[in-house]
């Protein structure tokens, strides 16, 4: 009962912030709302007893991704004070398309997918199991992601490197 009320409040907060991300006229404030919405998602993870994912959400999305977005906005000239319009000539069609796509996705998620449901407490060694799964069963996707990040890292160093005179 209480949990449900909290869930509804948090969900409304998250959706509201997500809406403000696309509707606000100032790009920097949009980025801040994006962070608030990430935070709401983290709270929902906590409600689902997935603390690890919640903390990872804060660490990666707020700590790394959102900070990078905000940094990029701050470094682009004129983006900070300028008021950009969130609408353009295609606003109507884009809105309609998004609503139809959203309804279709919700329909599939709610009625077409068989979600595995387990009525059990979260095991105490959930993180250890997650770790073993990452380097055991899912090792190839894990390593591919690492290689991708390494490539990005090397690319960034190549771009930022001082030219040898």
């Amino acid at each position: 009962m209480v949990l449900q009320a909290i869930f509804i409040l948090v969900a409304l907060f998250t959706i509201g912030c997500a809406l403000m991300v696309v509707l606000h006229r100032n790009l920097f404030i949009s980025a801040l709302f994006l962070i608030a919405s990430f935070f709401g998602v983290a709270v929902i993870y906590v409600l689902l007893e997935a603390e690890f994912i919640a903390v990872a959400q804060i660490l990666i999305y707020i700590g790394a991704i959102a900070t990078l977005i905000v940094f990029a906005i701050m470094l682009s000239r004129g983006m900070m004070t300028g008021r950009t319009s969130p609408r353009n000539a295609q606003a109507l069609w884009a809105g309609l398309g998004s609503v139809i796509l959203g309804i279709a996705l919700l329909y599939v998620v709610a009625y077409r997918v068989q979600w595995p449901v387990v009525q059990k407490d979260v095991p105490a060694d959930a993180i250890a199991r997650l770790g073993s799964a990452l380097v055991g069963r899912y090792v190839i996707p894990f390593e591919v992601a690492s290689v991708l990040l390494l490539a990005a890292l090397i690319g960034a160093v190549m771009i930022a490197r001082e030219k040898e005179v």
Binding site: A56, L59, I62, A64, I127
Partner: peptide
Amino acid sequence: NIGVLYIVAMGSI
């Protein structure tokens, strides 16, 4: 059970 990770995450806020 994720205490240390929690500390790191709060730092980013």
